[in-house]
Structures are given as structure tokens and as C-alpha cells.
Design a protein around this nucleic acid. Structure first.
Lengths: 163, 163
DNA sequence: GCGTTAAAGATACAATATATCATATTACGA
DNA sequence: TCGTAATATGATATATTGTATCTTTAACGC
């Protein structure tokens, strides 16, 4: 579903993304901008083919699947987009317009109800506890990204409404 | 790769699986047994099609992909097999022959080096910390399974060898 | 044995992802 | 500004993963 993002805000986000790319010596081309824009306007993660359809619907030209995958990879490298490996879907980074850096581990909370996603930094406690747990079997953690399912506030509330 | 599982031990595991099925009013048929057996003998998670190939190589008859998926679903329901959603691969449960129950949340530690997997119960601290973290954005966690990457002891050691 | 149910086979196809070669666009120095 | 190298995209084919559906076979309860 489409998220309510006003055009002005969207523009701010896209400009910020452009700057971020420039800082890495990369370019946010029209196609990349288009892909990113679709993800920014979605209230839930999208599969590569969903992105493809949206792009092909919004312009006359048609893009092949390969291009979408390439562009998604690029956007992921630029940390403008994250790939959720549990569902093979993509979300726009929640921190494009702020000065947030991906220093800490990132957790994605996926709502079972409405498919929305919250991107949160790992707390010190969580990082610590997970590392300790891994240590008990000799593992040294490398994951930078965790995906957890749950029920978001809105869905918890609306579940109660029926009563 | 094949894990070193001696035939006797494998048999014990399969018998235990059979009993577990029976307790749920289900049957561990030949096919199901075959699929489970391949997973038990693998040192790393296998994709459905990898399981399929192994099964079709080890007998004269050939099984269609559909059957493997059905059987993997069945084995998952019986908690004899776990599906790793981050890689769409399957592993035999580490607790088939012991009286372990899946009460706590389960963490799978995936080694980046050798692809081996460790299945461990969540510590109280980790569960607590993750739930707290989710709570800060209003999420109520439902995930029962977590997948973390890292480097296992063996691979940490062998990385040092080259020096 | 006979009908009911559960399991497996067969076939087709949908969804996800990559390999590779060709073309277009951009950046940039001569 | 022109040529060239690097980057980005297009086009095509194909690999991989997963499902839908219908048929056949096997097991079980009576």
C-alpha cells in the first residue's frame, strides 16, 4: 500500500539521497531515483518485482527485471535501502534525511498484521546479550542486521476494537 | 558436505523422530524418513532442491519438487526440521533424540566460514533485551526463531593458522 | 474387502534471481 | 568539442525457488 508521504517531504528525502550518493562519488540517476522513490512511498517492504511493476506503471518506458536488481543492489550499497532477507523484500532506509549513521546493529521489526516495518538501532543490552549468547557456543557474531516479527502498536490496538 | 554421523547414531535419531511423529498421531513414512535422513547427514543447511537431488541420487525412483516441499513442511510442523528463512534452507533439529522441548525462542548461529549451524536456546537476557527493545517502539514480539551470522570456533582457529 | 483419509506422484506454472552481451550515457582529458 | 574510458541501462536467456491442482497410491478403521 501507498504510504502518506507528501510530495515535499519525498523531495527532501530524494535530495538527501542524492547528496549521500555524491559524497560516495556515486550518482543517483533517474532510474535509481525512481526505484528509491517507489520504496519511500510504500508502507511495507516490496519485492523486486513489485518495485518493477510500480516503476513500469508510472512511466511509459519499461525496465527489465535485471535493472531493478542492479539498482536495488546499488541502493543497498549506498545504505539508502535495506534488504530483508527473511522475505526477500526491500525497504527504504528510515534515516536518509537525518544524520544517522549505521554504526550500531540494526533491527527491523516486522508487523505480522499490517506488514509495516520499524527500523531501530540495537540497544547496548540487546547487542551485549546476543554476543554473550553466541559466545557460549564459541561464535563471534558478524550480523549487522536482525529481523524480528511482532505486532505493531496500531495492530495491537485494532485487535482490541473488535471486543 | 556430509557430516560424520555413524549409521547407528543416525538410526537412533530416525527412531526418535518416528516416535515423535507417532506421539502427534502422524507417520514418518519412507519418503519423509529419507528427506529427514539426508538433512541429518548434512553438515550445513540444504535447499529444498539440494535435498531433492540427494534423495533422487540415493534411490532409483525420482521424486518431484512438490513432494520435497510438502515433506519439508510436514517435518517442520513436527519440529524435526527448521527452515532458515534468511537463506531458504533447511536443517535437521538438533534436539530430536533428547527430551528438549521448543519452549524458549531458538537462535540459529550460522557460520560465514563453513556454513555450519548451531541451534541454541535464547538466554533469559537476550529474550528480555530484545523484548525491551521492541517495546520502545510499541512492538510486541512474536518471533520464535532468530538467525544470526558469525564465525564458529573452528573457523576462528583456522583463520589464525595462516599467520 | 471397502470406503475414507492421508500421502505421494505428475504436470504446469508463478515468483525470484542471475549471467551475459549489447547499447546508451556520462565524465573527462587531449 | 571530440574521442575514449568508465558507468549505467537494456535485452535476452535461463537458473532457482516455490505453489496450484489434479491424479494415483497407500494406510487405516470398520
Amino acid at each position: 500500500m501507498k504510504k502518506q508521504v507528501n510530495p515535499k517531504e519525498l523531495d527532501v528525502l530524494l535530495r538527501a539521497a542524492e547528496v549521500a550518493c555524491a559524497e560516495n562519488g556515486a550518482r543517483l540517476t533517474q532510474r535509481r531515483r525512481q526505484v528509491l522513490s517507489e520504496l519511500m512511498q510504500s508502507s511495507s517492504p516490496l519485492s523486486a518485482y513489485e518495485v518493477l511493476d510500480l516503476c513500469n506503471r508510472s512511466t511509459t518506458s519499461t525496465m527489465p527485471p535485471m535493472s531493478v536488481y542492479r539498482i536495488l543492489d546499488f541502493l543497498e550499497q549506498q545504505q539508502l535501502v535495506h534488504k530483508l532477507s527473511s522475505s526477500s523484500k526491500y525497504v527504504a532506509c528510515a534515516h536518509i534525511a537525518c544524520d544517522h549513521k549505521h554504526f550500531q546493529k540494526t533491527h527491523f521489526l516486522l508487523c505480522d498484521g499490517c506488514s509495516s516495518v520499524e527500523e531501530v538501532d540495537a540497544t547496548e543490552e540487546a547487542s551485549e546479550a546476543l554476543e554473550q549468547m553466541a559466545k557460549t557456543v564459541g561464535f563471534k557474531l558478524t550480523t549487522q542486521q536482525f529481523e524480528l516479527s511482532g505486532i505493531c502498536t496500531a495492530c495491537q490496538d485494532s485487535a482490541g476494537e473488535g471486543l
